[in-house]
Design a protein around this nucleic acid. Structure first.
Lengths: 323, 323
DNA sequence: TACACCCTGTGTACGCCATAAACACCCAAG
DNA sequence: CTTGGGTGTTTATGGCGTACACAGGGTGTA
């Protein structure tokens, strides 16, 4: 914990920090561990291997890190630093290389959205955060494996969390709903990344076991005659050109969340929220914008009326039980 | 693999199966292992402990099971047998006790839906499958942990998979979309269960480390002053009465999927699909049913018109390429 | 300058894990 | 009776995290 949050504290540089050479060092350890985990997965990470990689004995690590679990916590946060700032906030040019290739598929039809202004749409921002998390997990798949153990959030993790919350906080959802939404999306990203790990793992253990694996698979698919739907989908080629499961899932998820947001607010939509939503405020049906005049907010009189009724009735956002 | 799928094969009962007492036995091993994992999690499962629990030496297990991984595969499928049949298909009353308490919150407003007929709604069926998976994972949280390793699906897993696919297959989505939807929901259930494991794990390691843990938490929350949104949500009580994260997530997910289904088909809605959707066929807005006469299918003339236009334009249901 | 101390790195050791290999037994088929 | 396979045991190997005692060197103080 102290180690995780030791940013502004201590470390004034006055110590023995001289030749910068052979001293073991928390950062060196963490960096070596990250490299190792990148290459061999979290299961392949051992104190021994980390120490070997640095040319020290195993136990030397324990002078700097309490134990393996805490090392993983540190690795997690070290890596999460990569998304520290969505490039474009102070921090004069340090010239890092950065991958920066994302934003490839972009879900479904839903237009690119021209939101550029200060507020941007919550959906756009939430999606961006999710994609950032996804990119990081593609570079460091073990991040997803590090779930399940005692997970102390570091400063970078919290910062990312805060950013996601901030994106959703302006939607008019209740506090607990905001949290639920962000957790949901976060878990989705992790779950998706876990699938990556699974695939990588399978690939690593390839070679000898691969034929056995595919033999089993083959035998399996022969048994599948009993399962009509699987067989049909197989024959129709559903497995040949699979969807991009991350993009697909994210789109569904955001659609579902958007529906909730619409249902909840529907009414007091300030213009900031408004110009990013692309459909009827009530039901989400895409609504054709007239050639001239003010763009329509509802797809139909029925929806407009419904919105009015809700505005009348609801008043308070039903968040907590009123006294 | 052979072990996993050894259902209808062999085992005619003609062997040495006599006193039914002290022989080690695959089923006994698997059962003991499941008990152990239920109690201590997958990490606490070791060949030694399983053997000890049965009163044999460690190595004796290897006479019946190739290794730990395969044992886990067997455990998984053994446990998945609990959802073999969604109670109500032949199988004369065996009088199992069964939990059967679910269906508590049921998402949001969305009416109970009276679907009882043969087809039932795809959403209802998919949701039921998801809840089944969820219930099983609440009984056996290690199921979620067993992801990530090489995962050979057993007959029960495949049966469940088939059931979910069948639920979605009638929606008019493309084959790859059907697969993506089912995978998405399946992963969601697992991810949600993983969170359970995490909590349980934290609870198990309680006692001494708990104060340290909460101490850290406390110190953490003091740092949170830097994060305005987190602080605000905290102060507004969002963390005090959290949403049921499974129910919430599932509702969002299904909403998103339903939107896709509507967008895809929109048109040729056969009556089977129809009487389960509770809202406007196009936009999903809840539509009040008139006191007398045929229930309305659209919330507004606009939506009716839109449906008509799409019906004109689309023609074929675009599910598979027509000859 | 001398002494003490602490910080860091090391070596050894323990207990846990999965599993390979060789051995012991018992029952049934030849 | 011999023989052989199924079954359980013993012993051993190599990997893991980490506790503990120790060593050496730089530093603060006398």
């Amino acid at each position: 914990m102290d180690l995780l949050w030791r940013d502004a504290d201590a470390d004034p540089g006055g110590g023995t920090r001289r030749g910068a050479r052979q001293g073991l060092d928390l950062d060196r350890i963490v960096r070596a561990a990250v490299e190792l985990a990148d290459a061999e997965g979290l299961a392949g990470l051992s104190m021994r291997k980390v120490a070997d990689r640095l040319g020290f004995t195993t136990m030397s690590l324990y002078r700097h890190v309490p134990g393996r679990d805490q090392l993983v916590d540190l690795m997690r946060d070290a890596v999460l630093a990569e998304l520290a700032e969505p490039p474009g906030t102070h921090d004069e040019g340090r010239g890092e290389e950065r991958g920066e290739e994302h934003r490839e598929g972009h879900g479904e039809g839903r237009g690119e959205g021209r939101g550029e202004g200060r507020g941007r749409g919550w959906r756009e921002r939430l999606e961006a955060s999710a994609r950032q998390g996804w990119e990081i997990r593609r570079r460091h798949p073990w991040l997803a494996e590090a779930r399940g153990v005692r997970h102390l959030p570091g400063p970078n993790a919290v910062a990312h969390y805060e950013r996601m919350l901030a994106a959703v906080a302006g939607t008019g959802l209740s506090p607990s709903e905001v949290l639920a939404v962000v957790n949901l999306v976060g878990r989705f990203v992790d779950a998706e990344a876990l699938q990556l790990v699974e695939a990588a793992e399978a690939e690593r253990r390839s070679g000898v076991s691969d034929e056995e694996w595919w033999g089993a698979r083959q035998a399996l698919f022969e048994r599948f005659e009993r399962y009509p739907t699987i067989t049909r989908l197989w024959e129709e080629g559903g497995y040949d050109h699979p969807e991009d499961s991350f993009a697909f899932g994210l789109a569904r998820l955001l659609d579902g969340i958007e529906l909730l947001v619409r249902r909840r607010s529907g009414a007091e939509v300030s213009d900031e929220t408004r110009d990013e939503t692309s459909g009827c405020r009530v039901c989400g049906t895409p609504v054709e914008r007239p050639a001239s005049g003010r763009p329509r907010a509802y797809c139909s009189p029925a929806c407009r009326q419904r919105a009015y009724r809700e505005r009348r009735a609801a008043g308070a956002p039903r968040t907590r039980e009123a006294p």
